[in-house]
Design a protein around this nucleic acid. Structure first.
Lengths: 217, 217
DNA sequence: CGACAAGTTGAACTCTGTCAATCCGGGTGG
DNA sequence: CCACCCGGATTGACAGAGTTCAACTTGTCG
């Protein structure tokens, strides 16, 4: 959140930051319909955002790692349009939106930053939008995770799948069975090693080739 | 673009608006890699946004009608991330982004408006994101067009499909053949009357029922 | 009138979802 | 400490929606 901001901005930001946590697996950060007051940056752990449609089916919207911001889609409206739940032990920072919005008027740097943050989110849906095959989706998902974790200082080649298989399936719009089969095939072909939630990327080149069209779209 | 803004804001806006057009079918508004300088509001006609992926395949991102804004996804970066092409005769207004951004710092109303505009775009991908059937996608597409056109003062029941079948197919992530078959079936079932690019919605209720889960997601 | 692009139609195939059975690991209680 | 259970995960068989490929039709424009 703070990268690219000058010291003065950071000083002012301090006053409107509220540290929250720890939350535990299953705890909600916010729910659909809660009054929108703040956006939040994940400091530790994984947050899943999702909605329940009219038929009672869950739709996973995304997974959010340390350094990433949740709640942006609430800006257009006075309540949150989705639920956010902790998948493991989560720490976060809440930024009061009314306050940060006023401050943005005074600090062009912050305004710019918020604009960019919002704009970036618009392009995010590529993975879900295309008519990609199950293999392409899964490869893109893994590479995406890897890159985001690496950008946050974690190992890009070895990490935990903090979310359940059913969550991955739901997010990628695949059946859980398909997720199983694809992961198994990826392992058979030497591209990954997976054991329960533990994942290792063995052939990043081939994965990126598969994921290529999805990520560069 | 202007709704909800006071008179003073409008006066200041005037100075940074540039009227562009007419563009003709096939003319580009901007292309991938063009320096990002401005967002634009469509005043007349239809604009298609799309990208070409690494394999040279086109992906249609959206269709934009009078009153709608294009170029928002360029804010994060110094070049446009997609192409925008006129599908028929198009008129538009360009808003210099650096200028509007500075102005937004002085006018909280405008800033708020931009935030909302951006935020709203984030949720737009629903039609493409879900694993909907071809029928649901097409129904949602038609109802979506109808509603947007109605909001802009056009007839909601009778309108032109200004885009080619292949564009619709590409946008909905279906094969062109599937688009043909679905439209034909919709017509056989009395839900629409379609002749070339001319479309009439005959049974809005049934279409909305079909589209329901997609639109309410 | 003829040629080309866009659209439509038909038939075969393929990927993925569905359903059902089975496996596995972690937690529980005896 | 070990047998038992339960939910998530895996595996297999099958069916169906949609793609693909190819042929054909229609409309448009020179």
């Amino acid at each position: 959140m703070a990268q690219g901001m000058d010291k003065a901005s950071l000083g002012e930001l301090h006053m409107l930051v509220e540290h929250v946590g720890p939350l535990h697996a299953g705890d909600h950060v916010f729910r659909v319909g809660d009054p929108f007051e703040a956006i939040a940056a994940v400091r530790a752990g994984t947050v899943k955002t999702y909605i329940i449609d009219a038929n009672g089916r869950e739709h996973v919207l995304g997974f959010h790692f340390p350094g990433e911001v949740i709640g942006l889609d609430g800006i257009d409206g006075d309540t949150y349009p989705c639920n956010a739940v902790a998948l493991d032990t989560v720490m976060l920072c809440r930024f009061s939106f009314p306050k940060i919005s006023v401050l943005a008027g005074k600090l062009p740097g912050l305004q710019q930053h918020l604009f960019r943050l919002l704009s970036r989110s618009i392009g995010r849906a590529a993975l879900l939008a295309g008519d990609w095959t199950a293999d392409e989706r899964m490869a893109a998902f893994l590479i995406g995770l890897s890159r985001r974790l690496e950008a946050r200082g974690f190992s890009p080649d070895r990490f935990q799948l903090t979310m359940a298989r059913t969550d991955i399936a739901n997010y990628l719009r695949l059946a859980p069975e398909t997720v199983s089969r694809v992961l198994k095939r990826f392992q058979r072909d030497g591209m990954i090693a997976v054991d329960r939630r533990e994942l290792e990327l063995l052939d990043r080149v081939q994965l990126e080739t598969l994921a290529g069209p999805v990520l560069r779209s």
